[in-house]
Design a protein around this nucleic acid. Structure first.
Lengths: 164, 164
DNA sequence: CCGGAATACCTGACGAGTCAGATACTGTTC
DNA sequence: GAACAGTATCTGACTCGTCAGGTATTCCGG
């Protein structure tokens, strides 16, 4: 279909334009995520990455988690995670404590304030997701839309290791 | 449906969890965008924001555009745009020239190198969008999926002014 | 046990964005 | 035509991430 000279043909350029238009829609999804993040920041006074960490720690149910697992779930390097948790500790949202059985590890745990904030932020975020992400879509579309996103998500997860 | 004590009921919490799961899918779309951006960076040696600027200038068809319109189309402050264009100028991708009729404005224009890079990057990006965004979806789903994304996109665009 | 690989986290230097406040021009009003 | 608001861009100080290279601890083979 494409010649091997590296020079784009007219049809190819036209097709590219169509494909790029699809690609731009991804940017839309991104913008939506951005908006949801900002809303959390304004309504709860924490960055969207802090929010993610609060959710992760909340899911762990009072158990302390090592830094490592925080860095893994975020798209963050371990260095970045260290600094993020530094700030969260300074803000009184989490505490760090060396693990008994492996003193290389620092177990990160929600403080009472962190827990309250996590609950509140989850509530706010759920409301916003409902309002800006679910409500605008026709009800009959939601399931398939979510399934398609999930398909892409798996595909993306497979790609990530190759790129970093 | 929700009581006015501010305390979440069990049903409410369960519903929130469902909604949050939807929300997490947005993160997937984000990750996909991230991957596409990285690919451009690795294959073309420019940041994904530079790529956006190259496309914008390319669409302008040889006309110089003022900084303002670059800052507007990106999710970037004007200060950020200044610095981005600084780097692009240093890399020889664009040139700046004060506008004749309004010397407050700097018209930004693609250099020949910038133009070549724009074409190549567009090609690469179109291929990647095809591969990671379109191909994984069943063909019968693509149109409706795109339409739904477009719906969300409009909704998001309406929100943005309120947040910054 | 002891020395070296592996693991978990931290840190210094840096890159790239934000924000708020210059700076430089334009257009308008009296 | 001088004062003044408005507009376009730039800049200094800062924040928050990355990367590469520590340091401390654990694990394991000989």
């Amino acid at each position: 279909m494409s010649d091997d000279t590296g020079i784009a043909t007219a049809e190819q350029a036209a097709n590219d334009a169509r494909v790029l238009a699809f690609g731009r829609l991804l940017g839309a999804a991104n913008r939506l995520e951005y908006i949801l993040g900002r809303a959390i920041e304004e309504e709860c006074g924490i960055s969207h990455l802090m929010f993610e960490v609060l959710l992760i720690l909340g899911r762990a149910g009072g158990e302390g988690l090592p830094m490592r697992s925080i860095a893994q779930e975020q798209v963050l390097t371990t260095g970045g995670a260290t600094r993020l948790v530094d700030r969260m500790e300074a803000a009184g949202l989490v505490s760090r404590e060396p693990a008994r059985d492996d003193r290389r590890m620092q177990l990160v745990r929600l403080t009472p304030l962190g827990e309250r904030t996590a609950v509140r932020a989850a509530r706010v975020h759920a409301e916003n997701v409902q309002r800006y992400f679910l409500d605008p879509l026709p009800a009959a579309h939601r399931e398939r839309f979510a399934a398609d996103l999930r398909t892409l998500s798996h595909c993306a997860r497979d790609m990530l290791p190759r790129l970093r």
